[in-house]
Write a protein that binds this DNA or RNA. Structure first.
Lengths: 156, 156
DNA sequence: TATTGTTATACTCTATAACTATA
DNA sequence: TATAGTTATAGAGTATAACAATA
């Protein structure tokens, strides 16, 4: 029986963590985007800005970027659109006129109050099949993986 | 003390699973791409094709897409480039001339033999800080999350 | 000179659908 | 008519750097 050459490998993509992580993240991202994009017409970056501003009250653009893991460019563009939609206002910082301070308008806060429970419900849906310890382990593992991956990638 | 309105929220982005998952996946994706992209000049899709072909020996394009979670378009484009680089060959299936059967060339197999240990080492590096149970929980959680997210998103 | 934020541009990815060849 | 794969095209996301205003 001379079957075609079938190289044997220790690497099984189905159980390769970076692959599984990418698939899970993509699927979850879509499932969440259904909420903020389809139902509230926001991009992912806009959603992150609104969530952070709601929690913090007001933030300089640079701080907002740091908290939401967005570049200054992403913040600038998302903020321009949100301001155009009347969801946030931008004011120059009188103490350093290079800074822009962003905060939600009443409309922005109202939108977040509608958005928040739906988003939390979706997260709960996603986590529904996981035991409490599994959720904890997942949360811990994600933070560790991210930190470790960032260090590895930074080494160039 | 009349501080500026600071809405209080149950949603904390820093502990929101879809957010943490997205950040971890992006960081891990970059850390892995350093290996297959910078050191072996492959795209993510090409890397997935090579890994699956190495494990399976040969595959129809459609099956390859299913296993690597790529659309027929992504498979077609990655395969064209890999064939151009002499890493795979494509042959029409004599039993149904619409199918294309792909397999690695000797050069493709040689490349994978060099790539595999480096990629596995990088995965090991990434997982280094996690306890065995944590890794198991992570793997289980990722599969469950993906399945659940796909179901949610499919509901439209 | 250095920093904050904006704008320009190019590149990659993704999504949809038209197209071909086979069945 | 339906399916496998290719090609075309448009849209979204990402990356780099040039730029204006301020410090």
């Amino acid at each position: 029986m001379s079957s075609p050459a079938k190289p044997r490998s220790a690497l099984n993509l189905q159980h390769f963590v970076p692959y599984r992580l990418a698939l899970a993240a993509e699927a979850v991202s879509r499932a969440l985007a259904q909420v903020y994009a389809e139902r509230f017409d926001l991009t992912r970056d806009e959603w992150r800005l609104i969530a952070q501003l709601s929690a913090a009250g007001e933030l300089k653009a640079a701080d907002l970027g740091a908290r939401a893991s967005l570049s200054k460019m992403q913040v600038s563009r998302a903020a321009t659109r949100l301001a155009g939609a009347g969801l946030i206002v931008r004011a120059v910082d009188p103490e350093d006129r290079r800074n822009l301070v962003l905060r939600l308008t009443d409309a922005g806060q109202a939108l977040f109050r509608k958005l928040e429970p739906v988003v939390l419900a979706r997260e709960a849906d996603l986590l529904d099949g996981l035991a409490a310890e599994e959720r904890d382990a997942l949360a811990r593992a994600l933070v560790k993986l991210e930190a470790r991956a960032a260090r590895l990638a930074a080494r160039h």
